[in-house]
Design a protein around this nucleic acid. Structure first.
Lengths: 119, 119
DNA sequence: TCCAATAGTACAGAAAAGTGTACTACAATA
DNA sequence: TATTGTAGTACACTTTTCTGTACTATTGGA
């Protein structure tokens, strides 16, 4: 990965005392959809709006648009519009988002360790 | 760590197609406070209600109680009441929550890599 | 006698998050 | 000519999340 990683825009209000970026992280990727969107873009690559909508079965058009705009503002994804008709818009994870891979792995592994053995 | 790890109660509706536990994870530890509470209990150990409230500066009494109850129901924390006056109640991370350490490390590292260099 | 301290509960209400429906533009296709 | 497909926007609405205020119980100490 040779692209530059942009710094995370700080939206922190610093609730937690220790060196604890958790409130910042939560405000950046919290909510029902953002982590799911990021995971798809990071692991499955660029996706069109419609493809995302289909995979996030249940998300409303409005909400998906909102979340994508927010992620774009926070530089976690990029949006590319093709001047075609019907319109085509592609969303991709930025290097900053791709750099979250380990977070996703850690979550998945935690889930596996503690959930899969049950069946 | 020799204590048994209890299985995660599944609340999944399986929105995401791949082997993607993200919706489950979000429904378990999503929201403004849960990850912060867990991080404190995992890394700093058992805390009394009042201590938690002070460290989560800004959280309302009601919300803190709610979140603690939810985490307890999901077996991520335990609650121990001492029959004293004034009352003393201590909250601790369960092995299941302690097993999330790597998730916290991954998040902190991601934040460090992409945020600290800015200053 | 009155107050402090702790961990709550009850309730009203505000704010945020999320949904559903209807609408748009425009070219290609049937 | 009517229909399809895409990526939206606008707006009303519901649901969930979160906060603020007031209240409780009990004991020890001033």
């Amino acid at each position: 990965m040779s692209e530059d990683i942009q710094p995370i825009p700080s939206t922190s209000v610093g609730l937690c005392q220790l060196p604890c970026p958790m409130p910042d992280i939560v405000s950046l990727v919290g909510g029902k959809w953002k982590l799911i969107i990021l995971q798809i873009l990071v692991f499955d690559g660029t996706q069109r709006f419609g493809a995302l909508k289909r995979r996030l079965d249940g998300v409303s058009q409005t909400m998906l648009t909102n979340q994508l705009r927010a992620l774009e503002n926070d530089r976690l994804i990029t949006r590319k519009v093709y001047p075609e008709v019907p319109p085509r818009v592609e969303y991709s994870a930025t290097p900053l988002a791709k750099d979250m891979e380990d977070v996703f792995y850690a979550m998945r592994d935690w889930w596996k360790r503690n959930n899969d053995p049950v069946e």
